[in-house]
Design a protein around this nucleic acid. Structure first.
Lengths: 228, 228
DNA sequence: GATGGCAACAGACCATCGGTCTGTAGACTG
DNA sequence: CAGTCTACAGACCGATGGTCTGTTGCCATC
């Protein structure tokens, strides 16, 4: 509960913004991105819809900001998770294959622990980046580029053989595959029903962690093979 | 123009369905999938919206049927395009690398000639497969499985080294990457404006054919490397 | 401490969406 | 020619994202 009725200072406005973002995050924990409506969001946060739009230019702007912070958090988590084993002793002697497996495994494990991030990634280009102003787009893309560079550095720390260009290609492909596999692994009810009903069609089913891990390893091996 | 006012026989109903599909296809040539509304579709086809829904269970059902026929057409086109050079003489001596390049190149070239197909693929899991009945889902998925098997056969004709499992993995990854790259290569106006405005951000831009070709080759090489 | 102004805010409002419902009218059947 | 069946149109529905108008709480000035 806030100690003010109307946000007049910048700090108070920031509190309002934070409340909106947190409420949106809580909603995404229980519903897909497409079902997060402005009506329900403003109802839950306890503000009128028009007032929510006073703090964010549109529904998409809320979600993009959420995506950006999630991206930063995840990059940190990945960096930590990749660094931990290297802090051991004999790990410097890992083979390329071992490091490929560890990298893909760590990426997938950290992603799997952040369903909201995956859901936002899958919605990014097809939904979130529509209906926003060039201003919001500019801020989001600038932040994305910074995260991107950070991520390149983290990846090269574990798998320097990729090279900078290879790491960039990997990130682009990995983000697209993450979003797509997430979508396919969380299909509409009718699709789930079909999978349950026809064992032959169930082969089309996707499981997020397993399928993503496999495809990322394939991609990494392809990048390393192309290097030769 | 139809010669009847009301479709009473099955043939006449088929004419109506075909008209709806053709009108939808024409609309997709000039607008993205998300902007194809039932209102505009029914207006253009010259029927009341309720009557369009008499022929198709929903907007998504129209587009899924379009996607299915496009998928079949494209598979044929790919098969023909891959077969032509093999009809020559000394092509049997192509190396693996040459065949990887030719396969990826042909896939990308045929896809690039079918923007509507790519747009529908990119919308498939995230949009089209929602809001449909299990009945429509079942029919669509069955057809997709048939096309899938056909496509495996076509791929193995050019690159048997993939193996059946490898070909299946390639199709799954390729369809996801096609959809995702298509989406990124056709961004919202605000994103385009940002690319035009900031040369550093322009590096994030994607070009459908070039980027898809590169990533598909990487994936194929990764699959073949994993085989060893 | 009263008062004026300003911006945070709520709620009515808008166009549009996908989809349903009801009544009409056109074509085949007896 | 009468009757029925149904293809069809148009009014209607709830919901969406977003805008507009007016009010009210808060702070500065007097």
């Amino acid at each position: 509960m806030t100690s003010f009725q109307r946000a007049r200072s910048e700090e108070q406005r920031a509190v309002r913004r934070e409340a909106i973002l947190e409420t949106a995050a809580a909603m995404l924990a229980e519903m897909p991105v497409a079902e997060l409506s402005l009506n329900e969001l403003s109802r839950r946060v306890g503000l009128a819809k028009s007032n929510v739009l006073n703090y964010f230019e549109s529904r998409e702007a809320v979600l993009l900001e959420l995506l950006d912070t999630q991206m930063r958090d995840w990059t940190r988590q990945l960096e930590d998770a990749l660094a931990v084993p290297a802090a051991g002793d004999s790990v410097a002697g890992e083979s390329i294959d071992e490091r490929v497996d560890r990298l893909a495994g760590t990426v997938v494990a950290t992603l799997a622990s952040r369903p909201m991030f995956c859901a936002l990634v899958s919605a990014q280009a097809s939904v979130l980046e529509h209906n926003i102003s060039t201003d919001v787009a500019l801020r989001f893309k600038r932040a994305a580029v910074a995260d991107f560079r950070d991520l390149v550095r983290v990846l090269l720390g574990t798998l320097p053989e990729l090279g900078e260009a290879g790491a960039e290609r990997f990130i682009a492909a990995a983000s697209m595959l993450t979003g797509a596999i997430w979508t396919h692994a969380n299909p509409a009810p009718a699709i789930l029903a079909v999978y349950d009903q026809d064992p032959e069609l169930a082969a089309l089913r996707m499981e997020f962690a397993a399928d993503l891990q496999e495809v990322l390893e394939i991609h990494l091996r392809g990048l390393l093979a192309g290097r030769a």
